[in-house]
């Protein structure tokens, strides 16, 4: 595979930027608690699509930026996103051949796994007890995956990234 051109890198960066903006956009109360983890979904997609290019290091850096934006402890999201990227890279061969709905459930479990790390850190350091509504974003992630997959695949094909 060739190195990515500047234009292709910009395309990938733009998808991450869009995901980050969607993640911090102010929303009404009802929508806020079921806000999906946009960045995680985009990250998993690129890990599956171009595992040689997008990996744990980039995931960690994006997580660090998210920590700055969310105001969470520095390193919390970074750790979660690095673990997510590791899991995605570990299973990308299998994930590629899964039927779409099975892929959605599997990706949902990977993201939920990384969310559990965040919840564990929060309960260790702040003593926050996880509540049931924390699982709503995990379900929304699964529902959203097939749609975002199609959109991101179209983006990838137009930019001729392979």
């Amino acid at each position: 595979m060739d190195n990515l051109t500047l234009r292709q890198m910009a395309t990938i960066a733009a998808t991450f930027l869009a995901a980050i903006l969607l993640g911090i956009m102010p929303t009404p109360g009802a929508a806020a608690f079921m806000r999906p983890d946009w960045v995680a979904i985009v990250l998993v997609y690129w890990c599956i699509a171009i595992p040689e290019r997008i990996g744990i290091g980039i995931a960690w850096l994006i997580g660090l930026l998210l920590d700055g934006l969310y105001g969470s402890l520095l390193g919390e999201q970074a750790l979660a996103k690095a673990v997510l990227a590791y899991l995605a890279l570990r299973f990308y061969m299998r994930l590629r051949v899964f039927p779409r709905w099975q892929q959605a459930v599997a990706v949902g479990f990977l993201i939920a796994g990384s969310d559990v790390i965040v919840l564990m850190i929060k309960s260790l350091i702040h003593g926050n007890v996880p509540v049931w509504s924390d699982t709503a974003p995990m379900v929304v992630n699964v529902v959203l995956w097939p749609f975002l997959f199609v959109i991101l695949r179209e983006v990838r094909r137009r930019a001729k990234i392979s």
Binding site: I56, G57, W60, L73, L74, G75, E76, A78, A82, R90
Partner: peptide, 21 residues
Amino acid sequence: SNLTKLLVLAAVSIALIVADA
């Protein structure tokens, strides 16, 4: 390897979290 990278970055993350907290 990916696992090495993950372990190094996880250690850095945990150090950052502890430092921050």
